[in-house]
Design a protein around this nucleic acid. Structure first.
Length: 280
DNA sequence: TTGTGTTTTATTGCCTCC
DNA sequence: GGAGGCAATAAAACACAA
């Protein structure tokens, strides 16, 4: 059984690559690259007809030299390993890889180019997921805060009403006493003074006191926040923990990692000197 | 078997860097 | 101006459901 990759070491098979790819890596590049001629275009080879063909010896014997092939699993594996090490290809490494794999340098370059594009697409998907999780968490916390705020507002209204009722009762009492002690001014003043003192001392048990300062009752801040503390709503600004997804072999590097870095401590920072990744 | 969506390999044109 | 990167795209291979 001939190993699928061997076709690329076979001179006749290499001829097929040459026909399609031209004579060198830069043969098709812009500037110095020459455009593919009509004749060359017409010589495009089809890929393998099926994955079984990859291992079918007769397939290689029978097919015309123009047949374009998919890379063998071994070739892809080696390319993946190389990509994992470094996602960009210096000319020397490209030549070495091409020799090793029996491919044209141009094929290796194209494979790396396409592989980078695939990586970028995946990365964008991951970034989207992270952002969406972060957004959902923020939205949820916002709803909680709105509800809490409404609850506190209704409490304030209720307490205010109670204070007003009590004040009215006290005013009535004072008025009644004032009528009874008409002519005894000093006694009335003394009684009113005592009532006021009683009222102040009886309402000062909590951390916040309601007092009458002529402009209506107010909440006096005793140090506790009106709003729920950060302790009460932890992670309000933090993104949801992003665990490694899919095959786990890719990095969590983000195209907008700066945006999320403060929000997600768990976001993995890839060593950008091209520490590398693979997903299968 | 066939239609359809996805993946892979390769081309093209434009851009940037040296 | 050449080399190489990237986005967009073509087209064949592949996967899979009906």
């Amino acid at each position: 059984m001939m190993e699928p990759g061997r076709i690329f070491f076979d001179p006749s098979a290499c001829h097929a690559n040459m026909l399609f790819l031209g004579n060198g890596d830069s043969a098709f590049r812009g500037g110095g690259r020459s455009m593919m001629s009509i004749e060359e275009t017409s010589k495009r080879r089809p890929f393998f007809s099926s994955s079984d063909d990859l291992y079918d010896e007769s397939y290689y014997d029978d097919q015309s030299p123009e047949k374009k092939r998919r890379l063998t699993p071994d070739q892809v594996h080696m390319l993946e390993k190389s990509f994992e090490t470094e996602n960009k290809l210096e000319p020397e490494r490209k030549t070495q890889l091409a020799k090793k794999l029996g491919l044209q340098p141009r094929q290796v370059a194209v494979w790396f180019q396409n592989r980078r594009a695939r990586w970028k697409t995946k990365q964008l998907e991951r970034d989207y997921d992270v952002l969406k999780s972060s957004y959902d968490a923020l939205l949820s916390n916002y709803d909680t805060l709105v509800k809490e705020n409404d609850k506190l507002k209704s409490e304030v209204v209720s307490l205010t009403e109670k204070v007003e009722v009590k004040e009215e009762e006290e005013n009535k009492e004072v008025d009644e006493l004032g009528v009874e002690n008409m002519g005894n001014v000093s006694g009335g003043v003394l009684l009113m003074s005592n009532k006021i003192e009683d009222g102040l001392s009886s309402g000062s048990g909590g951390s916040s006191a309601v007092v009458d300062d002529h402009d209506g009752p107010q909440l006096v801040d005793s140090g506790d926040s009106y709003f729920p503390s950060d302790h009460e709503y932890p992670g309000c600004m933090a993104a949801v923990d992003q665990s490694e997804e899919d095959d786990g072999s890719d990095d969590g590097r983000s195209y907008f990692s700066n945006v999320l870095v403060a929000a997600d401590d768990h976001q993995q920072e890839e060593p950008m000197g091209m520490g590398w990744w693979v997903w299968s």
